[in-house]
Structure formats: structure tokens, C-alpha cells
Amino acid sequence: MTSPASSSEVKYLIESSEGNTFDVSGAALRQSNTFNAMFLNIGADGPIPFTDYNEATLKKVFEYCEHSVNEENYSGPKHQDDLSKWDLNFFNEMDQKMFIDVINASNFLDIERLTSYCCERIARMLRGKNTQEMIKVITLPTAEELEAKQKVEEKKAAAAKKVAEKAAETAEKTETLEELPVQQLVQTTRNKLTRKYLSFSNE
């Protein structure tokens, strides 16, 4: 449900993956470009479903948005050293899992400021490190994972190839039918119907 449309006090209901709903102010929600593109002009009739993300993650993301409502418009990345105490606490409170969930949600909701701060924070993990040191802080896919991924991609490619071949075949048939003279086309259709009828009768 959307609350009455009085610009600054507009509240929206957000639905999480658990099916729970909670309020977010319009001003906070407008920091999400995804929201702006989807709902701002047409309005939302009922809770807005962001059901790929759990309640804790969404609340964390919107906590950030509520906090930065009064900050000047986002004008590019800010250096981590320039972050406020509140911002630093906000990030430091999160464990790794929550941090990743927040990045994913922020990326989906397209909240530039939050996504960019998260990314800068990750980049700091790699700052000043060489290849050997980088390997110690980030997980690289194992050979098995890469192999499994390659198999999935090969399967996908094979499936896509089949679909493409089928589509090409259908197009070819359609083309052939289109090229036939009218009388012949009628006859072809009749034959097909007869065959269908026959097979139906046999059943």
C-alpha cells in the first residue's frame, strides 16, 4: 500500500523475500534509480516486491538511504577516508555475508552512492597488494568450479544452438510455404489436415 501522496511524507511499503513488509520514505526510496524508473511516475498499488532480498538486507540498504536523504546529490565517488563516522559505523557493523547482500541489493536497486562506497571499500582490500597477496584476500574459483561453470555454459550454448537451428528450420519451412503457388498451398494444407485427421481417427 502506498500512503497518501504528500511529497515529503510519502511512505511506501516494501516486501522482502520472507513476505514481510515495512515502510520506507519516498525520499529514501527515490535514491534508487530502479525504483524511480519503475514506480515513481506510475505509483505503486500495494507493497513493492523486492522479493529477491531478505528483510534484514533491505532494511540495511534503506537505513543508509534514509540517513543520506539530506546529503547533497551524489556527484561521484567519495574517498573512504572522507566518510563520516556514521558511514564508517554503518559499514563496520556488517559481517561479510551482510556486506555482500547489501552490495547485491544496492546494485539491483541502483543506489549509486551506496554501491560506489561498497566498491571502494572492496578495492581497499586489494590496495597496495601484489598478485600473491591478493590471492590471500579474495577467493578465486577453483579448477572444479571453473570446469563446472564451463560445462553449464557449454550446455547452454548447445541448447541455444538447437533452438537457433529449429528456428531456422521453421523459418525455412514458412519461406517454402510462402513461395508456393496458391493452389499448391491449399493442397499442402489439405494434405496436412488429412494426415492429422487420419492420425486422429487411428487413435
Partner: peptide
Amino acid sequence: RFPLLRLPTLPLLNC
């Protein structure tokens, strides 16, 4: 260790 490469592509490129 941080599973950096499991992030969606856009934030990953941003990092």
C-alpha cells in the same frame, strides 16, 4: 577471503 568474483559484473567493474 572475500568472494569478489561472485559479485554482479557492474559492482565488480566498479571495484
